[in-house]
Amino acid sequence: LTQNVLKSYLETCAQRTEELQRRRWETFSSQEVCAYQRQSMAEMWQRCAGRLTEAIQQVVEFAKRLQGFMDLCQHDQIVLLKAGALEVVLVGMCRAFNADNRTVFFEGKYGGTELFRALGRAGDSGRGRGQAEGTASDEELLPGCHDLISSIFDFAQSLCALHCSDSEVAFLCALVLLNASRPWLQEQAKVAVLQGHLEVAFRLLLRRTQREELLARLPPAGRLRALCSQHLEQLQAFHRLHPGLLPAAFPPLYRELF
């Protein structure tokens, strides 16, 4: 089972861990950051929804390869993916996060929270960050969005501090997905059995690698849930600001999940 979890994860990762590590100091230039910040809020939301959807497609492929997942009824497969896909992406983000300069791998390079500033407000005219800050014209339209981005970065930072191996990240993702306490499951007992097997295998791995202390140091599951609700709240606030935006502006899978 341990081999299956790791193999499933590695096969469905867009980037190899070594590659992400090797490139962890390749950051966006200030001009490139400005270009992201100059985008309109709607453009940046669509861009991020696109990248997130790509990551979620990989989570679906990961789930399909996990032992036992495809034996569940399709209703439960969908329940688990709807509830867990974003959480899995957030856990996996620690692999693509450089905790030393608080940047994340996004569209080919590493960038900090400022890269995503346009998500919370209209793009500025390209002036430097310092100049725009604190002025009346810099009033934020979705102030909660910056809190969401900071919270996501904080979460990645706290997970990075645990220095998880690929196997550990793979297990954390599998356990987020195969969670028998998700509401609306039709065959909860079946999911509970799979979850139980995963937990045993994970504990055995941690014992073997003398990493048993990891379990006590993991962020509480409520933190992931809170991030997902924050994302939904911001998406709803965005839709209220842009009521005329065509639904087709977001990828179909993103619309289906959120």
Binding site: Q57, V60, M70, Q74, I78, K82, P252, L253, E256, L257
Partner: peptide, 16 residues
């Protein structure tokens, strides 16, 4: 079921 058309399709497809 119709509500989750894309997820259904992804789950039914072979490994892509």
């Amino acid at each position: 079921q119709e509500k989750h058309r894309i997820l259904h399709k992804l789950l039914q497809n072979g490994n892509s």
